[in-house]
Nucleic acid binder design. Sequence first.
DNA 1: TTATATAAGACTTATCAGGTCTGAATAGGG
DNA 2: CCCTATTCAGACCTGATAAGTCTTATATAA
Lengths: 155, 155
Amino acid sequence: MPAMQVSRKVDYALRAMIYLSFQEGGQPCSVGQIASDEGIPKKFLEKIIQDLIHHGFVHSTRGAQGGYTLARNAGTITFKDVIEAIEGPVSLNVCVGESGERSDNICTLYPRCAMLSVWQEAQNRVMDLFASTTLADVRTRHGALPRVADDVVAG
Amino acid sequence: MPAMQVSRKVDYALRAMIYLSFQEGGQPCSVGQIASDEGIPKKFLEKIIQDLIHHGFVHSTRGAQGGYTLARNAGTITFKDVIEAIEGPVSLNVCVGESGERSDNICTLYPRCAMLSVWQEAQNRVMDLFASTTLADVRTRHGALPRVADDVVAG
DNA sequence: TTATATAAGACTTATCAGGTCTGAATAGGG
DNA sequence: CCCTATTCAGACCTGATAAGTCTTATATAA
């Protein structure tokens, strides 16, 4: 019952994209390879990757020796891109629109809804991070994000 | 299909608490009064308030002329308190524990899970905000949220 | 021409958010 | 003391959806 949690789909999608970013320039990776290395149900991942293809993030090669590669440079694909491709616009509360502005629902009825600005601020904080973190960043930084510093298990 | 969205329960709980904070020191408010003023289903709100009572945030007076009041000073109750009372610990992804540390699941199997630090950072950003925003803050500031983080516990 | 891939999309299933309903127990006013 | 306004406890309902499976096609290297 964890609150505000991202779906498995998004987690799997990001893991798969990062996986592909490590192979940039090399052979295509098959869905079976990614799925088993990352511990993702194969058929499920197949569907998720289709989404990513339709959004232009992944390129596919059919047939034997086929598989997937990144369609764009890892440095140009942000967490925000992937999250929104898979889940649609993020909004921490119904009253907050995708870009942190006020959306047109109940809240407008209550001028006294003092919460709005809090949700907006929260949303801006996370989206700023997701929009400024690329696949290349995590590939490179590997856990050394500003402010998070410690453990993170190098392997 | 909005991503990472907080439940209606949390939204309702916070609205109700803020409502009560405006009445601090006055008569108890009935559930019907809060529900109709805030546009919340009455019976649903009744259950939510029970949760808040059991967590020590709200005090109830039974019988005619009864109702609810804040059990603690509005300046001592944070968004984080209310969110966690209603929804349990927040974790933006399965691999991130309640306080931003690493939790013991799949992620530990993959030393290469470079995402972890990103989720931790995102979680820290929102939780810092929620932990430093009290009911009194929103009551006072009323929509003019300036980077927050100033006076945590006001009177 | 076959073994190995992806492509598309219908289907399944269990959980749960978001509520409702019932029937208490409690307290003030007349 | 009874009536009415209120909270309290918990069983119950219900539609949506997350997470995943199954099936059948299509493409291609060797």
